[in-house]
Write a protein that binds this DNA or RNA. Sequence first.
DNA 1: CCCGAGTCAAGAGCAGTGCTCTCGCTTTGG
DNA 2: CCAAAGCGAGAGCACTGCTCTTGACTCGGG
Lengths: 234, 234
Amino acid sequence: MNAGRTARDRARAELTQEIKDAARRQLATDGAERLSLRAVSRELGMVSSALYRYFPSRDDLLTALIIDAYDALGAAVEKAALVEDPLDAWLAACRAVRAWARAHPHEYALIYGSPVPGYSAPQTTVQPASRVAYALLGVLQRAADGGVLVVPADAAEPSGVLAEQIGVLEAAAPGVPRAVLLRTGMIWAQIFGLVSFELFGQYVGSFDPADALFEAAIAEHARFLGLGEGVGER
Amino acid sequence: MNAGRTARDRARAELTQEIKDAARRQLATDGAERLSLRAVSRELGMVSSALYRYFPSRDDLLTALIIDAYDALGAAVEKAALVEDPLDAWLAACRAVRAWARAHPHEYALIYGSPVPGYSAPQTTVQPASRVAYALLGVLQRAADGGVLVVPADAAEPSGVLAEQIGVLEAAAPGVPRAVLLRTGMIWAQIFGLVSFELFGQYVGSFDPADALFEAAIAEHARFLGLGEGVGER
DNA sequence: CCCGAGTCAAGAGCAGTGCTCTCGCTTTGG
DNA sequence: CCAAAGCGAGAGCACTGCTCTTGACTCGGG
């Protein structure tokens, strides 16, 4: 990566990273709303207009942070899923989502909260966004390959529009039965629903320390998806 | 309500409402970020400082909008749940959540997206926030009273911390078995997870028109909660 | 009836923001 | 070696939330 040809190129890459780091620091303490280009430039000891040579607008800086956040979460989940037993890998992946979200609440809010300005996420974000989904699908794929994925008896086959939509997931995990892929689409939303409810304070007054509910939920998910406990035991 | 004694009181109440309406209009078009006190005051033909007599700060205005949004969603769900058959009522309530969210995306984002500033929701919001939860629990209560709620065989009894936390739900729906209440806590998050994923663009590229997935999910929920199709048929 | 107390809209002003443009200086590549 | 491109600095524009003061209005008790 040091093959960045000229000294100016290297300086530019470094400074771009420093800007993102400073912005991320400000994001972590003050939240996305309060992220200010001027404050970032002040922290770096430069003048605010100079920053526009690196990010054309505040939204572009935010977009860069969004992509980095998706990547960081994706990496955390992928790493957590590096467990042999598919059921354990699934649970670890789910726990990794929650742990990363709790460790980086503002970055989580940035990617799974309300879209920040009025802007629809640029196309460049959808690929990093799918990384964690692919990681989860990868676990199911491994389970299917290992024969420990027993599709539940009451799992309905997707039909109609769903039959087409499921194709995207099927391309990513061709060994997983379509009925399970459909359920994965639901569970995917529930995992992030649980984490968002916990982080955004929707559970205060009921499941406030949400550890127990989350554990109970992901155990239920595993059954729902056919990741039976020790059915095949590899 | 017209007993507001003096003319000044009535004028104040009216103007407060007009401010909220104008703000809600701006919210609907530009989103919460771009909601500006000055723009609201401009629309009302008054000067910005005058607005501070009605809302001490921008956050207070936002809080008022949040409460109104919770109330509007709660009312919509309660109205939808006015169906005799509990299963139909449950499905209608879930569909009402999604329909309201799609009709008022920015208001939905305000209450179920990332908490706006760095501020934790004031205590005044938690009661309106629980209104939709109580509506959903009410449907289950009616189902239990009618004998059409058959707790699934594999539903685990809450234990440990969950056994305590479930108490809040039990107080609201004492007739619903605790195992079902636990599952309700999970499903609650999934409903809003599905709606949020759809609204916030997380499903683009997979379940983009999310109608089918949502329908499949809430049907699954009904089974998961023991709201069997025509088990008792009242 | 009337006059002090409380409320009101208005305006000026402060500190902060995103963003643009121009200015010299430095680095780059033909 | 020199024109072109990239760079940081600075001034400036339009906007924001919010505060404070000022003068006019309304209200309710005497």
